Computed example of a mutant assay.
Amino acid sequence: MSKPAYIEFAAKDLAATKAFFQKVFQWRFEDYGPAYTAFFATNFEGGFYEAPLASSVKSGGALLVLYAEDLPACLAQVEAAGGEISQDIFVFPGGARFHFIEPSGNELAVWSEKAAPEAS
């Protein structure tokens, strides 16, 4: 049986991307040369490689969905750290989520099984 083990994203600005994910999600990073950094999140690992590309749902990219217990608080942290909200909090069967663009242009999402009161 196989399960996802590692995910990689392009990043046009490695320093800004690292600072964003450290501040908002407390990811740890380890650089492997000037053009690659690995990240260590709570439940998974991955990396960012320097390239003028970005992943988005509109272009058919995979959507990495992170978890937060308090969506409104997480959304505020994303904005305060320089992220752009691409889809505000919305409710769906099983919870609620929002989408954001990090400083290098990659789109990710954050979900919670708890529907945010203002999104209901």
Rank of each mutant, 00 (worst) to 15 (best):
M1D: 13
P4Q: 04
A5N: 13
I7V: 12
E8V: 00
E8R: 01
E8M: 01
E8T: 02
A11R: 00
K12V: 08
L14V: 11
L14F: 08
A15H: 04
A16I: 00
A16H: 00
A16M: 00
T17I: 07
K18S: 02
F21W: 15
F21H: 08
F21Y: 15
Q22S: 08
K23T: 08
V24Q: 02
F25W: 04
Q26N: 14
R28H: 11
D31G: 06
Y32D: 04
G33H: 06
G33L: 07
A41H: 03
A41F: 08
T42F: 12
F44Y: 09
F44L: 13
G46P: 09
G46C: 05
G47Y: 00
A51W: 01
L53G: 01
L53K: 02
A54Y: 06
S56D: 10
V57L: 14
K58N: 13
K58A: 15
G60A: 11
A62I: 09
A62G: 10
L63Q: 03
L63Y: 05
L63C: 04
L64M: 13
V65Y: 07
L66I: 12
Y67M: 02
Y67K: 05
E69K: 10
E69M: 07
P72K: 03
C74Q: 10
C74T: 13
L75Q: 14
L75G: 03
L75P: 02
Q77Y: 11
V78A: 01
E79P: 03
E79Q: 14
A80I: 13
A80N: 14
A81M: 06
A81Y: 05
G82A: 15
G82M: 15
S86D: 12
S86K: 15
D88K: 14
V91T: 09
V91P: 07
F92H: 08
F92D: 02
F92P: 02
G94L: 06
G95C: 10
R97C: 11
R97W: 09
F98D: 02
F100N: 07
F100H: 07
F100Q: 08
I101N: 04
E102I: 05
P103V: 13
P103M: 14
P103T: 12
N106E: 03
N106M: 06
E107V: 06
E118N: 09
E118L: 12
E118C: 09
E118T: 12
